[in-house]
Structures are given as structure tokens and as C-alpha cells.
Design a protein around this nucleic acid. Structure first.
Lengths: 207, 207, 207, 207
DNA sequence: AATGAATGAGTGTTCATTCAT
DNA sequence: GATGAATGAACACTCATTCAT
């Protein structure tokens, strides 16, 4: 009747769990400090204080300060990615303009989810802090868009899909982010409509 | 026998001149340090050393460190503005697509003039350091574009010129800057052509 | 029917053995770390890592960091002692100069056995770390030399054997160690010869 | 009647003086801390506190901690050198044994001047902290001794003056230092006498 | 106006030691 | 016994700013 022991890697779970929990706690503390005090004031001591641990304990989980801040940004950007992946995959079968509109809507939703942090990343952090992450994401999405432009029927009327993709990815990213951060006096549906028109006119000028 | 005193504002001129010269010297030193050592290493002591004055003297001309860096950025952005104004004013009489093309060309030339500094601003500085300046410029140019969209004959086929202007300004700014900074594998004339197509298709879909 | 208990000191043996084995393991780890990373970098964490145990476990066997390092040095110096004892006991019947020469040879051999560690002790460690051990050894050997000077026939022509012994012990120790560490441009047999001459002339000026 | 201005380099003296005075103050503080708290406890903060200045001010005069400690040692060793130079130059015309005796006397006097610091250097500091200084001095004095052995009439009966000098320098240095530090139960004149005999018997065995 | 020495709170990081498990 | 996460005081060093000269 003895319960069989779980395999070793499962038995070690609680330890890993505690460790992972602490990592999460530190990342959350880092995020809180960044949001509350700003990038320049975000010191390891403040992060430790916020996390309720001692400065030395940070270094059980992260090799240095930069890695903590990177982890904060990575977590945010992973959340954003996850949200976007969900959004996109649901609409890939829509006709062009609808797909664009739905994507923009989902993107604006995702970006609006945590405007404070988006503002932090967009305004307080030097881009070099998250350049790699950003460029990797732009590359990945650019490839998707490029592929999409080639496979759709009828194909988009663009000469070089990669070039158009390069442009589209950056333009959509920047304009949506700026729309959320600047909150200009443009109603959201108007904005989505204009951006959709811009994109559709570009990739399918005949329509 | 007393020589008549010159009016106050004239008497203070030489003083102002010397002061202005020193301000310029400090700004140049600040720029040199930023370019040479990067944002994180740009300390007031280094700026003073580079300017050939003592650290204390900085504070005769600037209230604090941030104001020095702001002045450096302002000067750069003023230079950029001046160059752009010249570029634009020369082509305002061209038909739409030519105007766009010429503007983009001029913009790319201006941005390429000092890529190092552009990279510094675009990658190392937190945007908050130059947010006001950037938004002021975007506002100013946005108004110009908005006006242009309304006055040209036949008028652009956009529903709300301010909205289109908001979009166009940010899109052109961001894409040209990123093109210069990322140097993607897209030939420059191809890039200008695509961007021109994008813009023309947007503001003049019938064409 | 109870098996008779073995006497206490026997029962604790295995325990002591395990304990002693662990002590040895820690000392070896300490030595390895000292040699690999140097005195300044030799932290308890590194020693524990090298020994394959946890930092906390060190304190089951040693009261603090210093005692670990002391033990490392003690073990080295005990090894050295053992080697020397062997060397000396084999030559005590030789006539004066031969005895000196043979002793110096043995000493140089022993010191050359582990030059790296000798250098560590001689150059990186503050002498206070091993002062007691060194002085105890000097005292012990000094007594031997002092006795030797008195009992040999004819007796050495020194006025106060303890004084001469004090001098001889320190001079031989220091010069041989420095010879090994500095590797001056003096051939070894030349060095041994000179040192022998120095000593013999001192204790037996008539010869 | 106007006094002529002194040349620029003189006018700047007071500044240099103040600077030099501060350097001296820091070195003295460093020495005091080393003597009071020991090498391991000698932190920059303690030195600053002892000097009555702020931690940051140390770095106006020294590039890092090590350079402060090095300066402390250098000052001590320079004082020692100066004292020795005086001692030696007064006796170079004495006949061999008298010269040796006078030199040893002067050396013991010099070393006794600041026993506390000698103990610090000899027992608490890792030799690597002052290895360069020590070896330079040994080289310099060794050359002197080597020359002396060759030029005296009748010449010393040594085969290779440099080898003998190497031995003599280290032996005298070590034994005198150890005599002062250990204070063995050997009266000073007895010690000087023995050492003199040792040396004379070595370099002039016939006498 | 100009200096530049002085400041001192602050930084990121280390590590001998403890103690709940 | 053994663990290893947690500690927290301490470290060397920086730098924007001040102020007596």
C-alpha cells in the first residue's frame, strides 16, 4: 500500500518552486521599484527592500543588477507576446482588412493592459536595455508578416515582402505604442480605422 | 567730462557674449563626453574637464547636470530642425509624390549627418530626457502637415487632416530614424520609394 | 544474550574516522582553493564548493574560516617536518661539513617539493597566519642544533650554543626558502657549498 | 617698489604644499589604522575617519586603496633607507670587523626605531604587498656589498662576490629583523658579536 | 566670476556566519 | 549531521553638488 516515490526530478519540485517563487518576488519588486521610483533610482538596495529580503539575497538568484532589470522587462515583454499570439491566431482566416483591424484592436488592448509599465519602458529606459529583446521580436513578427504577404490569395501587391514587412512591423508597433502613451485627441476606433486604411492601401493599392 | 554711459542692454552685451560662449563650450564638451564615454559615464566632472573649466564653474551656467545634457540634445535637435526647414522649404511647390520623395531624402540626409549622436539619443538616452523637445517638434511639424493636407489642390482624400498628420509625422520620423540606425538590408532608394508609396497611397488613394 | 558493548573509544572510532576524513577533505579543498585562487579570493563558500559540501557544514568541523586556513598550513608544515626529520636522522653520524651539506640538500629538496604552496605561504599569507607554527618549529629545531653543538666531539667552538642555534636555524631556513622562491642566478651546488662554508666557518673557525 | 612676482611654479607652491600635506595626513592615518586595527581591518572608510576627512576625499589623492597602503609602506621604508644610508657612510673607512659591527649596530638602531610598524610589516602584511620594494632594496644593497667585497684590500676570500653578497644581504636583513621582532634572550652586544663573527669568518676565513 | 577641494550619501557587490528545516 | 538559503554589515569606490577662497 506504500505510495511509490515520485521520480527524483519531481521530488525536487518544492525546492525549485521556492526558488522560482523567490525569483518572481524579486522581479515583481524590481517592477514595483521601477514604476514607483523610476529607472535612475532603481537600486539593488531598493529592490531588496521592496522584496522584503536582504541585499545579499538578491545575488542568490541574479548575478548582478542588470540581470534583475532585464528579467523585469523580459517578463513584461513575454506577457505582451503571449497576449498577442493569442490575439493573432484567432483572426488569421479573416479577409485582409478585417485581419488588420482585429490585429490592431488586439494590439491596442494588450498595450493598454499595463500602460504604466509601457510608459516606463517607452520613456524612462534607454533603449539599449531592451534592444535585443525588441529586435528579436521585430524580426520574428516581420518574418510572419513577410510570409503572410506572400502566401495570401490574391498575393499582396508589394514588390519585396521582406521590405514591406520591415516597414509594417515598425510602423504598427511605434504608432500603437505612441497612441497609447500620448493619448492624442483621436478616438480609438477612428485611429484603428485610419491605420487600417494606411496599411491596406499600402499592401493592396488596387482595393 | 564723464563719458555718457551706454544704455544698460548694450553694456551687458560683452558679458552676455562671454557667457554665451561659455555655455556653448560646455555644451560641446557635454556632447563630446556623451559620444566618447556614453550616457552612463557622462559625469559632470568629465564634462568640466573636457570643457577645460572646473566642476564648480558648470554651475554658473547650468543649474544641474540634467540641464547640461538637455542643452546638448536641444542643440542637436535645433541643428536637425534647421537642416530640415531648409530641405522642406525648397520643395513645397513640387507635386505630391515628388514632395514626399524629396522630403524623405532630405530627412535621411540630415539624420545621417551625425549617426553617432543619433544612436546615442535613440539607444542610450531614456526618452524622458528629450521627450518635451521631441513632442514639441512633432506638434509643430504635425501642424504643418495638417495644413498642407488641407490647402493643397485637389485636397488630400483624408477625413481628418490632424489625425492623418499625427500618424504621418510619427511614422515618417520613426521609420527614417530606424532605417538609419538599423541599416537593414534595404537599399536606400528602394526604402524611399516604398515609404513614398505608403504615404501617397494613404493621402491620395485614388492616384 | 546482549552482545557485549565494545569499549567507548572503539565504538566511536568509525565516527571519528568519518569525521577525520571530512576534516582532511576540507583541508585539501582549502589548499586547492588557496593555490588556484590565492589568499584574497579564498572564501569559505569556495572551500565548501571545492570540498563538495555545503557552506554550513564547514562549521561542523571548524569553528571559523581562519582555523581552516591554519589547518591547511599546519598540514603542509607537518609534511615538511616529516620529510626533514627523515633527512636529518639519516646523516647524524656524518662529520660536520658532510652533515651540513646533506641537511641543506635535503632541505632544498623538501622545499622544492611544492614550490607553489611555498610561494603562497611565503608571499601571499601574512606571517601571523602561521607564526605560531613557524616559531614552534624553529624552537624545536633550535634545541636540536643547540644540543648537537654541545655534544659533538670535539665540541663546536661557539660560546653559547643556544645563541648560535638561534642564528643558524633562522639563517638556514630563510636562505633556503628564499633561494627556492627567488631562483637567483646561483647554481644549486654552488649555493649549497657557500652556505656550508658559511656555517662551518662559524661553528668551527679553526677548521 | 612693486615686488616682482615669483615665477609661476613658485606661486603654485602653497597649493602643492597643501596637497602634499594632505597626502601625508592620509598616509599617517593609514599607518595609524594599520597599527591599531591590523591589515585585514584597514578599510578606506577607517582611514578616512582617522584622517578626519570623508571617504570620497581619499580619492583626490590616491587612485585606490592599495596605493594608500603602498604609500604607507613606502614612507616607512624610505625612512629606514635614509637612516641606514647615514649609518653606513660614516663607517666605510673602518677595518672589516669594525665596519660590520658598526653596520649591524646602526641597522638594529634603525629597525628598533619603530618596532610596532616593523612588526606590522613583518607579521601582518602579505609579503606581496611590499615585495617589489624589498627586492629593489636587496638588489641595491647587494650590489654595494658585492662591490665592496671586490675592492677592499686585501680582497675578501670569497669565490664569487655576487653570490656571497646575495647570501649576506638576506641573512643580515632577516636576522636583524627577527632579532628585533622576537626579542630572544640574547643580549644585544652578544648578538652583534656573534653575527659579526659569522660574517667575518665567512668573508675572511683566514683572519 | 572662477575655482577645485571637500563632501557624504549612495552605489553594486561580497562573504563569514547562522539556523530552520 | 547536513543543508543551503538568508543574512546584513561591511567593502571599495563614485559623483552631483557646495562653498570658502
Amino acid at each position: 500500500m506504500a505510495r511509490p516515490r515520485p521520480p527524483a526530478d519531481l521530488r525536487r519540485k518544492p525546492q525549485q518552486d521556492r526558488s522560482r517563487a523567490m525569483v518572481e518576488r524579486i522581479i515583481s519588486a524590481g517592477q514595483a521599484v521601477l514604476l514607483r521610483d523610476g529607472y535612475e533610482k532603481a537600486s539593488t538596495n531598493r529592490v531588496a527592500l521592496e522584496a522584503g529580503i536582504s541585499p545579499g539575497s538578491l545575488y542568490q538568484y541574479f548575478p548582478d543588477k542588470e540581470s534583475i532589470l532585464t528579467a523585469v522587462i523580459d517578463r513584461y515583454s513575454d506577457e505582451l507576446s503571449a497576449r498577442l499570439t493569442g490575439v493573432l491566431s484567432g483572426h488569421l482566416d479573416l479577409p485582409g482588412p478585417e485581419l488588420v483591424r482585429a490585429t490592431l484592436d488586439g494590439l491596442l488592448d494588450a498595450l493598454s493592459e499595463n500602460v504604466e509599465f509601457l510608459r516606463l519602458v517607452g520613456e524612462q529606459l534607454p533603449r539599449s536595455q531592451f534592444k535585443d529583446k525588441a529586435e528579436a521580436m521585430e524580426q520574428r513578427i516581420g518574418d510572419l508578416v513577410s510570409t503572410y504577404l506572400m502566401v495570401q490569395r490574391p498575393p499582396a501587391r508589394v514588390q519585396e515582402p521582406p521590405t514591406s514587412a520591415w516597414i509594417l512591423v515598425r510602423l504598427v508597433e511605434h504608432l500603437t505604442v505612441q497612441y497609447v502613451l500620448e493619448s492624442p485627441a483621436i478616438p480609438r476606433d477612428r485611429f484603428v480605422e485610419e491605420l487600417t486604411r494606411l496599411i491596406v492601401a499600402y499592401v493592396d493599392p488596387g482595393a
